[in-house]
């Protein structure tokens, strides 16, 4: 059952060049789909378009974003906002800037459950406590009363993950959720997200530049270059035999920590030239 279907989505800078070129991708309910590509390939832009948080200078040219069969781009802004707020969530990249510094954690986790989804304050607080316990935060009651600056980066990312699952969304966009974290924390957070996803049965669009992460967390993936999807595949098939030359080169470029003598294999210039010509990027 496809839950999210992005169809021929094109996005550009207002009065400028294209950022996404006719992107299509499907995420089935309860599945984890990876979105990989280099910096600037447009990975995050897809997530932003789905959630309706494109920068002001960016506009959708054409395409459709079907969420449970309803085209978000055809909805009036207020309806779209409420629909997305109720059924989707974002796990942001940088936990240090994604929490409001002047508000307590408790309010930041519960306010929207009360304001937007109409829960009672008591229900929302109970839910926040349970979720903080689920993301292995000790003494959740105390954390709810704390301010972001009193907590470590890893703690804050756990809180943001808990918060993303709070309203049992059908789809979560995880935008490079481990990139800003310390290497030792990255692995725990990854495991946590994967575990939560399985327990809650949420569909997950996992944006990352790390193919290693994709192989651990995702079931399928799309490879993006210069705003165009060059390959979509099941994870198992992709890592066995990538079909597109650029994907193959990207996979080969992933450093292998098990073999320190292997050296680095950057994507060859010829492959880059070929893929550029293919997507029409100059």
């Amino acid at each position: 059952m496809t839950y999210l279907s992005v169809q021929n989505l094109s996005v550009r800078i207002k009065g400028g060049g294209p950022l996404l070129r006719s992107v299509s991708l499907d995420v089935a309910a309860g599945h984890v789909h990876g979105l990989v590509g280099e910096s600037g390939a447009g990975k995050s832009m897809i997530g932003r378009a789905i959630l309706g948080i494109l920068p002001k200078a960016v506009e959708v040219v054409s395409g459709a974003i079907l969420l449970d069969g309803v085209d978000l781009l055809a909805l009036p802004p207020a309806q779209r906002r409420v629909r997305v707020g109720a059924s989707c969530a974002l796990i942001p990249q940088d936990p240090l800037t994604a929490l409001n510094p002047s508000r307590r954690i408790g309010r930041q986790m519960t306010d929207r459950l009360v304001d937007i989804l109409g829960w009672t304050r008591g229900d929302a607080e109970a839910r926040a406590l349970a979720l903080l316990a689920e993301v292995q935060i000790t003494d959740p009651a105390r954390v709810l009363r704390q301010y972001p600056h009193e907590l470590s980066g890893g703690m804050r990312q756990r809180i943001l993950i808990a918060s993303a699952f709070a309203a049992e969304p059908k789809l979560i966009v995880a935008d490079e959720p481990t990139t800003a974290l310390d290497v030792t924390v990255q692995k725990q957070i990854l495991k946590l997200i994967a575990g939560m996803q399985v327990r809650h049965g949420t569909a997950l669009l996992f944006v990352t530049h790390d193919l290693g992460v994709v192989s651990k967390v995702c079931q399928s993936l799309s490879v993006l270059y210069a705003g165009k999807v060059v390959e979509t595949a099941e994870v198992r098939a992709f890592f066995a035999a990538p079909q597109h030359p650029y994907s193959a080169a990207l996979l080969a470029a992933t450093p292998k920590y098990t073999d320190p003598d292997a050296g680095l294999h950057p994507v060859p210039d010829a492959v880059i030239a070929a893929v550029r010509a293919e997507v029409g990027h100059d």
């Binding site: 207020a78 906002r81 707020g85």
Partner: peptide, 26 residues
């Protein structure tokens, strides 16, 4: 432009309440 403001937008808050709730206190 900050991330917590963007996050509040994804949660279904209108532009006016995002300004009032998230941006103003800071």
């Amino acid at each position: 432009h900050l991330d917590y403001v963007t996050l509040a937008r994804t949660q279904g808050y209108s532009e006016a309440s995002v300004i009032w709730r998230e941006a103003l206190p800071n």
